[in-house]
């Protein structure tokens, strides 16, 4: 299972790339593998405020609908429009072109609660 060293993670299988006060968010290789072929991604609206642990997006695969949770609080400043027409990108390149949204963080201290790659791998070993 691919777990890039330079990202942060959550136990709910989101990844986070931190750049200043912004966080790019997606789902991990493990999550996309569990979900199977993604056929639809419902993205948040740009400008939407989200709270850590609240809903960020929704994905559908194999007639199964799963919520994707916001790992951090913030305001959505960009969404990946590519996923509207090519949701399979989420399977093909989860850490790259399959990103979901970018947040401008409103509670930057929350990053202290994220997992590093080693901790996420340890979490996966118990999954």
């Amino acid at each position: 299972m691919n777990v890039p060293e330079d990202l942060k993670y959550t136990v709910e299988h989101e990844w986070i790339r931190l750049e200043g006060n912004r966080a790019t968010i997606g789902i991990t290789d493990y999550a996309q593998d569990q979900l199977g072929d993604v056929v639809f991604v419902d993205l948040p609206a740009v400008g939407q405020e989200v709270q850590a642990g609240g809903n960020l997006a929704v994905v559908e695969s194999v007639k199964s609908v799963s919520d994707v949770y916001a790992p951090l609080s913030g305001r959505v400043v960009a969404v990946n429009e590519l996923l509207k027409d090519a949701p399979e990108t989420l399977n093909q390149d989860p850490y790259g072109q399959g990103w979901i949204a970018v947040l401008e963080l409103t509670q930057p201290d929350e990053v202290q609660g994220l997992l590093d790659a080693a901790a996420y791998i340890q979490h996966l070993s118990g999954a």
Binding site: A31, Q34, L35, S61, V62
Partner: peptide, 11 residues
């Protein structure tokens, strides 16, 4: 306890 879980298991 672990979601997402492989949908196949539920089906």
């Amino acid at each position: 306890d672990q979601v997402p879980a492989a949908p196949e298991m539920g089906y």
